[in-house]
């Protein structure tokens, strides 16, 4: 059979068109439908905390403890009470992590306030950097998580966290920490602590959502993260935070 150069080119062209049609059909019909409406790439989670609204009721600590089965004596979130007398180092207390609330403060003569604490969900997290086995990581949607099946329990991360937010789970012997209620926020719910906060002092926010109130909040308020000099790129922002808070 004689094939001219022209025939070869036309045949090649036809084959190419056929192949591309087939390939796109395969993409349309053959691709598995997405099983899940949640897309990690569309979120970047954090939290905003209004210190002036916190009343130290401890609802957040209790809710967290019950939602996440936090072992007794350990805390994923807790509340601290600061009492600051002029010219003296601040007095900080957090009886049982505020699980039972606080005994009323009697001292009217000092500056006093409550500060809720939790994992700051650092984007550039020291705990992730020190993990030798890749058991702790920042998820694509910005939450610092622990893979229980990979964690060795070496506690490097517990030492590395500047905020004291990690502990070794006494039964599992793996590291445990605030997951920002990852099992809830990926289902469209808010975290247990935010759900149960009666004054709205803490709010879960999504920095990638243009309609999220966080953008207004950051524009109109004086905000601060904890220990900014640690350069951890923390994503928990505190409004009107006193300089004494560490």
């Amino acid at each position: 059979m004689d094939i001219s150069r022209r025939d070869l080119f036309t045949m090649g062209g036809k084959l190419l068109v056929l192949a591309s049609v087939g390939a796109s059909l395969e993409q349309i019909t053959g691709a598995a439908p997405p099983t899940d409406a949640y897309r990690m790439a569309e979120h970047w989670w954090g939290m905003i905390i209004d210190v002036d609204k916190c009343i130290g009721c401890g609802n957040c600590a209790r809710a967290c403890s019950r939602e996440n089965n936090v072992p007794s004596g350990y805390f994923r979130t807790w509340v601290e009470r600061y009492e600051i007398e002029e010219g003296r180092p601040p007095h900080v207390e957090s009886p049982n992590g505020a699980l039972d609330g606080f005994p009323p403060s009697k001292r009217e003569d000092v500056k006093s306030f409550y500060v809720p604490k939790l994992c700051n969900q650092c984007a550039d997290s020291p705990c992730v950097q020190v993990c030798p086995v890749g058991a702790t990581f920042v998820s694509p949607d910005g939450v610092v998580l622990v893979d229980e099946t990979y964690c060795l329990g070496c506690r490097y991360c517990v030492q590395a966290c500047p905020y004291g937010c990690r502990y070794l789970h006494p039964d599992k012997n793996t590291v445990d920490k605030c997951t920002l209620c990852y099992h809830r926020i990926t289902k469209g719910l808010t975290t247990a602590c935010c759900e149960s906060c009666p004054t709205g002092a803490r709010q879960l926010v999504d920095f990638k959502d243009p309609k999220d109130p966080v953008h207004e909040f950051l524009r109109h308020n004086k905000v601060q993260v904890l220990k900014p000099y640690m350069a951890t790129q923390a994503k928990v922002y505190y409004k009107n935070l006193d300089g004494a808070v560490r």
Binding site: M40, A63, R66, E67, N68, G134, A135, T136, F137, V138, S139, P140, L145, V146, D147, E148, T149, Y150, T179, Y182, H183, R184, T186, K187, L189, A192, E195, S196
Partner: peptide
């Protein structure tokens, strides 16, 4: 797939039951 960790951990954490 996403970084130096096991992506299956994300699904395992998401599968935890909710209380509230």
């Amino acid at each position: 797939q996403y970084g130096h960790y096991r992506p299956g951990a994300l699904d395992a954490i998401r599968a935890r039951p909710i209380s509230f």
